[in-house]
């Protein structure tokens, strides 16, 4: 959400709704840090469980805190549901709505422009990203399947390509050798230059800030959002709290 803070510095008071488990907690900590850095205030947070479907109470709590921004730190079906409920409570007219993690075209299509209009979202991929590789990919995908690729398609494509590249570099299919060959690998991803950090195998790639368009602004039915900015902000391994690679199960 860093880019949104830079884009609209007048948004000072932020309220968050967070899934109560590691992923949500991680997002919340990162958000608090960013807000503190930018001099904005975190005015409150509501936790909800992984199987919550009824968000009205949290939305009332959020409204009562009188924030400029309501930021949803949940994902998948829960972000869909909570965003819809926020819209149905008329919160879009009162404050800025933002969703930290949108899961791509399929989810946004299900939400539709009536819900998405004016909502800010983070996203890993969007088909209008302006790189030459992405244009090739989108054209090829549309030619093959007759539809627009979403995040899952893009990630599948990138993942497979990365493994192939690793096998080619290592000259073998031995997993250990492939891992080693890919450490520090830099390449042109669909969203721009990316790198696999050698220390902790974190993939450093661009993350997008999106904003929902109104139906009237849409060029075609998949043109749901505009890409406002794209960039990287990753913690170093030690900041992120994982100093060494610990294989699972040991």
């Amino acid at each position: 959400m860093g880019p949104l803070l830079k884009l609209k510095p007048e948004l000072k008071r932020w309220y968050t709704i967070t899934t109560d488990y590691v992923f949500g907690e991680g997002l919340l900590t990162a958000t608090k840090d960013l807000l503190a850095e930018a001099g904005a205030t975190h005015v409150g947070n509501s936790y909800h469980s992984l199987d919550e479907t009824q968000f009205s109470s949290y939305l009332n709590n959020a409204r009562a805190a009188n924030p400029d921004v309501l930021l949803l730190l949940n994902f998948g079906g829960q972000s869909t549901t909570s965003l819809k409920q926020a819209i149905s409570f008329g919160l879009r007219d009162e404050l800025t709505l933002a969703m930290a993690v949108s899961s791509g075209l399929e989810q946004l299509r299900a939400l539709g422009p009536e819900v998405l209009e004016g909502v800010y979202m983070g996203g890993a991929y969007w088909h209008t990203v302006d790189t030459s590789r992405n244009k090739e990919f989108v054209d090829a995908f549309r030619g093959e399947y007759g539809r627009t690729p979403g995040t899952l398609a893009a990630q599948g494509y990138e993942g497979a390509r990365m493994i192939l590249e690793g096998v080619a570099r290592a000259g073998s299919q031995d997993p250990e050798a492939v891992i080693e060959a890919l450490e520090g690998y830099t390449y042109d991803a669909l969203t721009g230059p990316s790198e696999i950090r050698a220390d902790d195998h974190q993939l450093l790639k661009d993350y997008l800030l999106l904003r929902g368009k109104a139906r009237a602004e849409m060029a075609d039915e998949d043109d749901l959002v505009e890409v406002l900015s794209s960039g990287q902000s990753y913690k170093s391994p030690s900041e992120a709290g994982c100093d060494a690679l610990v294989p699972l199960g040991e």
């Binding site: 079906g77 829960q78 869909t80 549901t81 819809k84 149905s88 409570f89 008329g90 009536e114 819900v115």
Partner: peptide
């Protein structure tokens, strides 16, 4: 999780005092 929108006729909010 699946959800559905309320019909057009029933969209929008009532404001009762400060509550919506």
């Amino acid at each position: 999780t699946q959800s559905v929108d309320a019909p057009d006729l029933l969209r929008g909010v009532f404001r009762i005092g400060s509550a919506v």
